[in-house]
Amino acid sequence: MSFTWKFTAREIAEKPELLAPGHRMCSGCGAAIVHRLVLKAVRGPTIVTHPTGCVEVTTAIYPYTSWRVPWVHTAFETAAANAAGIEAAFKALRRRGRLKYDHVDVMAFAGDGGTYDIGIQALSGALERGHDFLYVLYDNEAYMNTGIQRSGGTPLGAWTTTTPAGTKIPGKPEPRKPIEDIVVAHGVPYVATASPAHWMDLVVKARKGLEAKGPAFLHVIAPCPRGWRYESSKTIELSRLAVETCVFPLWECVDGEHKLSAPSKAIALKPDLKKPVVEYLKAQGRFSHLFTPEFERVIDEIQRVVDKRWYLLLKKCSV
């Protein structure tokens, strides 16, 4: 895959906002930043689809719409099926000579609920059938718009309303599902992780995903001030800390080959730079119960899980 697109910050700033202001995502919402940045990478006519989720409910409150690209809302489980259908429809139109564009990019955005849990079979099917689309998982690590219920993406030890921290249970007892490994196992041409803190890396990866011939998957961390219990000004700080602690390492996998992205590569080359997970955990109220004598051990467990996944990733990247 040869990639030639270059841009400056100014060029990105001069691009139109395809997600219009006036949307009703919370103050400081990480998902809003992720969407704005990914949409700066579009290369021509583009159609976007969302299943139910935070971004859908806040950008299409009747009669208002924040979408400046053609946009389709679909049911919670069907983001990838819908994207597949849109792509197939364009193919059919082209075959009949009824498409006035050379190419139309198709993007599906879904949250963690719509991806790890409810949408996974539609996603798996669309990946297997090889549809040419970009799937962006904006991961705020719980069902946020319905009131912070745990999902398959919620990390170990996090408080949610369905994994409350009590006297017996220290928040969520299980680590999150490694969704990006599941996608990689489908043998698709492009899979990557990204963080809005590293905005340029995110924009580049979104464009690479669009350019890939076949399914592409982008997993982006999207901190949520309400659900993670932190002050709205810290969204970017946390999405940076997630990378610095290796809770959310940045990498891409092109045609099955893993490669670390610059911020994580720096840590791999100089392990002293790797920050302890405590720094990430103590910045968020959803982990505050872990800083008590009875649950302290969970912090060690989280560190162990993070270290293990980091170690396995380094092996995959042959570092």
Partner: peptide, 18 residues
């Protein structure tokens, strides 16, 4: 004028006036 504020604003409320 590094434009980081523009990149990170969730609401597109920091505008670059070219």
């Amino acid at each position: 004028k590094c434009l980081l504020c523009h990149m990170y604003c969730p609401d597109g409320a920091v505008i670059w006036n070219s």
